[in-house]
Amino acid sequence: MSQESGHVYTHGHHESVLRSHSWRTAQNSAAYLLPYLKPNMTILDVGCGPGTISTDLAKTYVPEGHVTGLDVPDIMDKARAHAASEGVTNVTFTPGDALHLPFPDASFEVVHAHQVLQHVADPVQMLREMRRVAKPGGIVATRENDMSGMVWYPEIEGMKEWLQGYMQVARANGGEPDAGRRLHVWAKEAGFPAESLTLSVGTWCFYTPEERAWWGGLWADRSVSSNFASTALKNGIYTQEGLQKIAETWRRWTSDENGWCTLIHGELIARV
């Protein structure tokens, strides 16, 4: 994604953010798409981050095809290094803007994005671009958080306030944190007929001690160190003390042996 187009990635690429992104695979983050793939397909992965989903798709699901990952320049080296470490050669990474994709019309059989539309100022324009570069008969696929549907246990003091603050920060950056429930509406506005759309819901769930330590720990770190923190301070949504309290809230949840958290994602398959 590019800030030149008027949208800002809420989290940035701090280590605590990449810790989350690097965990993502095709299976845990794009399972809804996998039944549609064939070994020789060409795929564009918009907003590919450190390239773990892109590389997994190339290695496991389209070994005779090719995957192109696109994101901001400062993450490309990490994506290329990951692909090289996996010995995957049928994936390439290129810098670019999600709202102005640098490819001709009808370039790819599948155009995919994972948790990108929620961060852009004009998700309809991004879907139009994804549709433009997809071949006739191809697929546009996207999976997006619906943050209001996030559920946790137990009811740790401060968690509701964190979620409210997160929503404010995301919207201050021009995004929509409840993107999952809006995908079908945005797709129709982008020119996809209603009958071309297939909708589903996917979840992540964290509850083992290891999962809690990882998930809660990265959110505690994001709260004080990532772009989330600087945006929150800049817009007066939190003070530095308030951000520290958020981090402490997440650590309390992490240390609770009964801790459980799930996120829901809206999923969209749109036929071109």
Rank of each mutant, 00 (worst) to 15 (best):
Ile139Arg: 10
Lys160Arg: 12
Val62Tyr: 00
Ala270Leu: 12
Leu70Cys: 04
Ser16Gln: 05
Ser54Met: 07
Gly191His: 14
Leu199Ser: 10
Ala81Gly: 10
Glu211Met: 15
Met150Ala: 11
Ser107Lys: 01
Ala213Val: 05
Ser196Phe: 05
Pro154Gln: 14
Gly175Cys: 03
Thr60Gly: 07
Val116His: 01
Trp214Val: 14
Pro73Ala: 05
Cys48Asp: 13
Trp23Gly: 01
Gly236Trp: 05
Pro209Tyr: 08
Asp45Val: 06
Gly69Thr: 05
Gly149Leu: 12
Val185Met: 09
Ile246Gln: 11
Glu211Phe: 14
Asn40Lys: 08
Trp253Cys: 08
Met76Asp: 03
Ile53His: 05
Gly87Arg: 02
Ser225Lys: 10
Gln164Tyr: 10
Arg182Phe: 07
Thr239Ser: 15
Phe206Ser: 09
Leu34Pro: 04
Cys48Arg: 13
Arg252Asn: 04
Thr142Met: 11
Arg171Phe: 10
Thr60Tyr: 03
Arg143Asp: 00
Val17Cys: 01
Ser2Trp: 12
Gly69Leu: 02
Gln115Ser: 15
Arg271Trp: 12
Leu44His: 04
Glu4Ala: 15
Glu161Phe: 10
Ser225Arg: 02
Ala170Ser: 11
Lys135Leu: 14
Asn40Trp: 02
Ser85Phe: 06
Val88Gly: 09
Ser107Glu: 10
Gly259Lys: 02
Ala84Asn: 03
His14Val: 09
Thr198Asp: 08
Glu241Trp: 08
Val140Cys: 02
Gly138Asn: 10
Glu15Met: 06
Tyr153Gly: 06
Leu197Lys: 04
Met1Thr: 07
Thr94His: 10
Met159Glu: 08
Ala187His: 01
Met130Tyr: 07
Leu243Val: 08
Leu70Thr: 04
Arg19Gly: 09
Tyr32Met: 06
Gly165Arg: 01
Arg143Asn: 00
Thr92Arg: 09
Ala31Ile: 02
Gly137His: 04
Gly216Ser: 11
Gly138Glu: 13
Asp71Ser: 05
Gly202Leu: 00
Glu109Tyr: 03
Met126His: 01
Ala113His: 05
Thr249Phe: 04
Glu211Arg: 12
Glu64Leu: 10
Thr208His: 09
Met41Cys: 03
Leu197Met: 11
Cys205Glu: 15
Glu257Lys: 11
Phe228Met: 02
Leu57Val: 06
Ala31Ser: 10
Glu144Trp: 08
Glu248Tyr: 08
His14Asn: 15
Leu101Pro: 04
Glu157Tyr: 12
Lys188Ser: 09
Asp178Asn: 13
Val17Ser: 01
Gln3Lys: 08
Leu163His: 06
Gly217His: 02
Arg19Met: 01
Ile237Lys: 03
Val272Trp: 06
Ala84Met: 05
Pro104Glu: 15
Glu15Gly: 07
Asn235His: 14
